[in-house]
Amino acid sequence: MWRWLLIIVVIFFGWRHCSTAEISYAAPDKVIDQAPQQSEVSGLQPISFDKYAIQPVAEFALEARVLAREDYWLGREADLSPTDLVLGWGEMADPQVVKQINIRQSGRWYFWQVDSFPIPRRSIETQSANMHLIPANDEVARTLKQISPGQLITLQGYLVNVNADDGWRWRSSLSREDIGANACELIYVKQLKIIS
């Protein structure tokens, strides 16, 4: 029985990661010129979340197109953030651009690949990001479960750093200009809306 269960799991994940299902882009002509908005905060008390302390470090808001999503069930990060979204704004919210970029997620990372650049490399790097989302309430969690690639969303909350009593830490990037390790935003999401 365990052998069959393992085979089914392997087939499912193989299909999921190799599927070439066409993304349906909502409001394909909508332009999102504004980059995510960030402003520093100080003096806010940590937010208790199970066995973690979530420290807000900046207010954060954006309107963006969802380019990819990945759900997680294992690990400490999944206790806090069950879903990562790759979000795009500016040229990276344009379906005609995004269709020319192979985007995927794995292990809390965002990867992209092109045959030829539809826009400059730096525009891809600075107008898209992998964001780890911590739902602040049940309504946000329900909305997050409904989000699909191609949709347009708005969100508001805080960029945060997380600490556990045993010394474990998870830190948010505070810049849209960085790439590579530690470049993802860790967001405590207070409001989340699908706008398309």
Rank of each mutant, 00 (worst) to 15 (best):
R171S: 14
T126S: 04
E22H: 11
H132P: 00
A35I: 03
H17W: 11
S81Y: 03
A78G: 05
I11W: 14
L85M: 12
V162M: 05
L155Y: 00
E91L: 10
R76E: 12
L85T: 05
C184T: 10
W112S: 11
L144Y: 01
E22L: 10
S173N: 09
P95G: 02
S196C: 13
D29P: 00
R121M: 03
W4K: 11
Y188M: 15
L62V: 14
R65Q: 02
V189A: 15
I23A: 05
S173E: 03
L155I: 02
S123Q: 14
M1L: 13
T126M: 04
K190H: 13
I54C: 04
S19K: 08
Q146S: 13
L152I: 09
K99W: 04
F117Y: 15
L85G: 08
P28R: 01
R142F: 09
D165T: 11
S106E: 11
V57H: 05
G90V: 07
A58N: 01
V41I: 14
H132Y: 06
W112P: 02
M92W: 00
Y188K: 15
P36D: 11
N130F: 05
A27P: 02
A129Q: 08
Q96D: 05
S172N: 05
L159P: 00
D94F: 01
L192I: 13
E125V: 05
A64Y: 06
P82T: 09
N137W: 00
L5M: 08
E63V: 00
V162P: 05
Y158F: 09
I7R: 06
A35M: 10
S173C: 13
W170M: 10
N182R: 12
G167I: 14
R142P: 12
W112G: 01
S19I: 09
H132D: 08
Q96H: 08
A64F: 00
L133H: 05
T83E: 11
